[in-house]
Amino acid sequence: MRAVVQRVAEATVTVDGERVGSIEGPGLCVLVGVTHDDTPAKAAQLARKLWTLRLFDGSVLPPAAGHAGAEAPGAGPADHPAEQSCSDLDAPLLVISQFTLYGDARKGRRPTWNAAAPGPLAEPLVDAVVAELRALGATVETGRFGADMKVALVNDGPFTVQLEI
């Protein structure tokens, strides 16, 4: 499985003008791609990684830690390395299926999608990532599998990482 993870201030996904998923940050917008040999175990592993991945800086601390939960004056990413996760902040995630993460454009000018798993294999695995995140206690919004989705987001940083499970 492959994921592109973006730290966001907010993110929404719409299909045919209807908002189908939306989060207010701090949170993560996660594009998830599935390939042919992916399994439910890999989906669970990806979910655990997303829930515990430290992508939020120390200036965003929950009130329980004795902070107001807002950016400290004069503090920035250089002052506070990525030391908190979604699980630390109870931060929401917007998970969107994205077969194009397995596009291959090394030859020619048109990508091939041979490495992307077909829908009947990919959809249950994306659903498994979402289900596992929710089982871990995460607030998760989603896109709509196979739909022509419009994703809007406000990157925080920007801070983007790629994961391969």
Rank of each mutant, 00 (worst) to 15 (best):
P158D: 05
D38K: 11
E132Q: 12
V30Y: 08
A44N: 04
H80Y: 14
P124M: 03
V151K: 01
D104T: 04
E83M: 15
V20I: 06
L163Q: 05
F159P: 01
V140P: 00
A47H: 02
G137C: 06
E123F: 13
S97A: 13
A44C: 07
Q98S: 02
A65N: 08
Y102E: 07
L125P: 03
P120W: 04
E71L: 15
L31K: 07
R110I: 13
L101G: 02
L28F: 04
L28N: 09
E71G: 10
V5W: 07
Q84T: 14
T52Q: 14
R134M: 09
P62N: 13
L61I: 13
L133F: 10
D104I: 04
T160K: 04
D90V: 12
K107G: 06
A115S: 11
V126R: 03
H36W: 15
L153D: 03
A128F: 00
V13G: 00
T14A: 13
N155S: 02
S22T: 07
V13Y: 00
A65M: 14
G143M: 01
P92H: 10
V140M: 05
A64H: 12
A128S: 12
L121P: 03
F159W: 10
A105E: 12
T35C: 15
M149F: 04
F56V: 08
G17L: 02
K49D: 05
R110A: 13
T12C: 05
G58N: 03
T112G: 10
A47E: 01
V4K: 06
C86P: 03
Q6W: 04
M149S: 04
L133E: 01
P73G: 00
P63T: 14
L89K: 03
I23P: 01
G69V: 10
Q45W: 11
V151P: 00
R54C: 10
P77L: 13
Q98F: 02
P73Q: 01
T100F: 10
P120K: 08
D16V: 07
R144G: 01
V34N: 05
K42Q: 15
G119Y: 07
A78E: 15
V30T: 07
G33R: 06
